[in-house]
């Protein structure tokens, strides 16, 4: 896929999205947001892709939050909401059906952290810092920040970060559950490749269904969640991969999954 700001490389089972370096302290401008939305839309149809990684450029993941142009800020509500929807890079990442990993090679702040939080997993360089940005500088989060942060770190720390702009170190983020793994900056790429490889070797349809069930758990009462889980589990009975999984377990060998 060809883009001007971002890049997206697909190699066999993996799609690797790279964000551009920030310009003027802000990574996700209008063009970048549009490209990320296009790219995620294309990936919706990429049935062979088993994992998507999102990485930054240089020593930054993504920073800043674009403020709307003056005419949008002064426009009527529907136009403002349109503009915000067009900036919805995190919203697009969150809709991807396959496992996603944000690789925080450096700072993830404001809209950058919102984009990172839309992925299923986050791994971070030990040098990365994570924060929502200060309210007066970065403005009100518009791509999921007020909702995803408390779901990941709990209401107390989320309020602290959202109200005061408090920034976490990678280690603090690990302890808070905001990132899953931390590695020295020079080893992060290796860790990312290893994790992607691990995810690719699992059964792809089961991985997508596990993702669906887990994220739905936040929206469903437990009784409905158990219904969804049971239905997804039963649908998987029709897959060749499930049969292969059982066969490989019985034969004590590694399974070969086809994604069917």
């Amino acid at each position: 896929m060809r883009y001007r700001k971002i890049s997206c490389q697909i190699t066999e089972f993996r799609a690797a999205i790279r964000l551009p370096p920030p310009s003027g302290g802000c990574t996700i401008d209008e063009d970048t947001a549009a490209e990320l939305r296009d790219c995620c839309h294309e990936l919706l149809f990429a049935d062979s892709v088993r994992v998507v990684t999102v990485t930054g450029s240089g020593d930054v993941f993504a920073t800043g939050r674009l403020r709307p142009p003056a005419e949008i800020a002064a426009a009527a509500m529907p136009d403002r909401i349109d503009w915000i929807a067009r900036m919805g890079a995190a919203a697009a990442i969150a809709k991807l059906p396959m496992p996603t990993v944000a690789v925080l090679n450096g700072d993830a702040t404001a809209h950058g952290l919102e984009a990172a939080m839309a992925a299923d997993l986050r791994i971070a360089a030990d040098t990365a810092r994570l924060g929502m940005g200060s309210l007066p500088d970065c403005g009100f989060p518009y791509d999921g920040g007020t909702q995803r942060l408390p779901r990941l770190v709990g209401p107390g720390l989320a309020r602290d970060m959202l109200l005061t702009g408090r920034t976490l170190s990678a280690q603090e983020a690990l302890a808070a559950g905001l990132v899953n793994r931390v590695a020295p900056a020079e080893e992060l790429e290796c860790l990312a490749a290893q994790l992607a490889q691990q995810i690719e070797s699992a059964a792809p349809v089961a991985g997508r269904y596990a993702k669906e069930a887990v994220w739905a758990s936040g929206d469903l009462a437990i009784a409905q969640g158990l219904r969804l889980e049971a239905d997804l589990s039963v649908i998987l009975h029709s897959t060749e991969d499930r049969a292969e999984g059982l066969r490989s377990f019985a034969e004590k060998r590694a399974p070969q999954f086809e994604g069917r």
Binding site: R122, I222, S233, T239, G245
Partner: peptide, 21 residues
Amino acid sequence: RLGMVPAAGGSQTLPRHAGPS
């Protein structure tokens, strides 16, 4: 990794205890 999803509530209880990620 065996082509299945948890079927004893795990997809709902794990995120409730440990968070979705």
